[in-house]
Each structure stands twice: as C-alpha cells, then as structure tokens.
C-alpha cells in the first residue's frame, strides 16, 4: 500500500504537470481538490482516465469520484480493492 501511494503521488504530479511540487510535498491525507493540491474538474477527468488506463478501473458512477479522489489515502485504498491490472 505504501508503494502504491508513492506511485500515485508521482503519477499525479507527472500527469497533471504540477510544477514545483515533489512527491515529498504531498501528504497521504492532503485534500486533492479545493484547499489541498487545488485540483479542478479537468484534473478529475485526467484522474478517471488514469484509473482506467493504469489500474483497469472504470468509474461508472461519477458521484463515486468525490469519495475516491479525496486524498492519496482514499485513492490507494480504492485501487487496492478494485484494481484489475
């Protein structure tokens, strides 16, 4: 789980081109949207594509995303429980 969290942090920084942010700057329970990393709805779409492409998880209900993408912690837990690749 710890390795997955580090992997997610690195992927999010790369995919979303978060300049001036390192893996070490992102805490496991930091909010990804709003006051935390400040991600927005376009970033949410990028994360949904990333889940599908890299972990084989298709989000059918967009409302699920709100809980899944709360933090690195919640994302890692969801991926661990649902990944198909």
């Amino acid at each position: 789980m710890e390795a997955l969290k580090q992997e997610l942090k690195a992927k999010i920084i790369e995919v979303l081109n978060l300049e001036d942010i390192n893996v070490a700057d992102v805490k496991d329970d930091d909010a990804l949207f709003g006051d935390g990393l400040g991600l927005d709805s376009i970033d949410a779409l990028e994360l949904i594509v990333m889940l599908d492409k890299d972990y084989g998880i298709k989000l059918v209900d967009p409302k699920e995303g709100k809980n899944i993408f709360q933090s690195i912690e919640t994302m890692a837990a969801y991926i661990t429980a649902n990944r198909t690749k």
């Binding site: 376009i42 779409l45 990028e46 594509v49 599908d52 492409k53």
Partner: peptide, 9 residues
Amino acid sequence: NNEEFLTPT
C-alpha cells in the same frame, strides 16, 4: 492507447 483513454488537457 488504441483510441481509448483520451485525456482532456
């Protein structure tokens, strides 16, 4: 990606 996983940015 074989016409899948198209990202918006």
